[in-house]
Each structure stands twice: as structure tokens, then as C-alpha cells.
Computed example of a mutant assay.
Amino acid sequence: MVSLKLLLLTVCLVKLLSNYLVYGNNLLYRELGCTSILTENSDAGAYDCGNFETRSADKCYFYGKAYDLNQELSDADSITIPCYAACKCRSTSFKGENVASFRCANVECPSLFNRRPAEPCYYQYEKDNCCEVKTYCPETKSTVYQCEYDNIMYKEGEKIYINNNICICKPGFNGTINNDWCREIRCNNEINNIKSIIAKGAPVYFKTSEGCPIEWLNPENIPGTAGKFASAGKSQIVQKCKYGSLELLVGQELEIGDLSDSESYKTTCSCEIPPFITCLKQIKS
């Protein structure tokens, strides 16, 4: 029988992932402005993130744009992350040094604390809003505009996840990614996890790396050692993954001890696409 603890952890993870269903691991590198290093098959086998190492410690960065201390995130950038509010560049202490990082308020949606409305009522959303904009109760099902995507029907105002975008069912929707009804989902690692990135921590994904990290492992709190090779490394990739000062070759596992949730979840880490380690968390059967 599934324990109450496991059930609650699963519910929390599902809620956390509801906005991040379709991102890939490579988007972390894109967010940091890293340059891809292609293999002989033209795949991104590794990334060069040297530009991150040379960033100014007294500036915050958002998708390549620099902000001075005490400067607020611009309206143009804020609208791309509607689940955050009042983001401002602040100075904080990390490893005895001052580091600039954004501090934001999290937008809490009423639907997170309430039961879903009973049929035929449902929540409606808009592209540039984090939360539901209203609860709509149609008089009859036939009065509701519907969209079809991937053989699934959606009612007007419902979210549709397409690749790394949240799209909204509305008149005119044709299944393509269009600014009229879609916005890109962003992982916002530079806002949430800048200290872990600086420390060369490891992003942790739920079940598959086709998603935003749900947490990061910090090498100072969770030490690791180089383990066996879980898969054959790409011989032409000479770049290594780093976990703190530890270096691993492509295909090599990172051995870590038990985590606080090890009773219910299994976390495995390995070097897939340097320079960051990739960790996957799965529910134990």
C-alpha cells in the first residue's frame, strides 16, 4: 500500500511539474547562454559555458540580459515568467563572497488551494497569466468552443502543452506554436538556482530529463564520488561534467549517498551532456 508520505510527495511533485511538462535538459544551457559543441552526428554532445564563468558578480542575468543591483526585471522580461512578481536584482553572500541574484515573489494561484470545480464548470486560462482567470460554467456543453490536439479535445481556455510551450485553446487555434495562443515555458534557473549553478551542482529531474529541474544537488551538502560507466561515452567528446571540484567523463555515474527522500524515491546521476551532471528521480516500486 502506498504510504501517506509517498502520496503527499507525489502530489507535491505533480503540482510542481504542472507548469514544466515538456522542457529538455539542453534548455539549461540555452538559458545560461552556453555554446553547443556538436558531435560528428551534429548532435549537441557538450556545451561550452565559459561565458558564465566570466560574468560580473555585481550583476544579475536573465537570458543573456544584464541587470544592475537594485534594478527590477523589465516589464518585457517579467511577462515571460508570469508566475513570479516584483523581481529585483539583489546582492547576497555565497561562500564568503557577494553574488548578485534575483529575488522574486511567487504567485500563488487560488486553484492550488481549492478543489477543481464540479462539471460542467472548469478553470479558464490566458496565455500571459500564471493563474486561472475565471471559473466558467457553460449552460450546455454545446456552447463551449473546443480545440483538438494530438487526438485530445480541449475546451476554450484550457491549457495545451506543446513541446516547450503552454498554449491556450481559443478560436483560431490550429495546433501550431503561435504567439497568439502560446508562450514558452521557462525553467528560470538563473532566478531560482543561481547559487547551485555557481557551485557546479547537479539538476534533478523527475522521471526524465525532458523537464525542468525539480531541485538541485549541492556538492557541499551532498558529496559524491565518481562511479562506474552507466553507458558508453562518446569517444569524440573530451569535455567533462563537473560536480563541485569532481570531474566525470561522459557516460560515467555520480555516486551519492541516501537523500532525505530515499525511502520513497530513487535518484540516479550521471554525466550525459557536459558540463553539468544530470540526475533523475523516480518513485520506488
Rank of each mutant, 00 (worst) to 15 (best):
D75P: 14
K65F: 12
N70P: 06
P138Y: 03
L16C: 07
E247L: 07
R183H: 10
A199D: 13
L7T: 12
K195M: 14
C137S: 10
E253F: 08
V204Y: 05
N178R: 00
A100D: 00
I81A: 02
C49Q: 02
D128T: 03
G50Q: 11
E156A: 09
C83F: 06
Y125P: 07
F206L: 15
E53Q: 13
Y125E: 05
T39W: 08
M153A: 11
F102C: 04
L17P: 00
N179L: 11
C34G: 01
Y205C: 11
R30Q: 15
S56E: 15
Y243F: 12
L6D: 05
E247G: 01
E215T: 14
W181P: 04
A202H: 06
L27T: 08
C182D: 14
E184V: 09
F52P: 03
A105C: 03
P275D: 15
E31W: 11
P203L: 01
G233E: 06
A232V: 10
K65A: 13
T54M: 15
F206I: 12
P203T: 03
N188I: 11
K240T: 14
F102H: 04
F52I: 06
L248H: 06
E215H: 05
C137D: 07
L246W: 06
I273H: 00
Y84S: 04
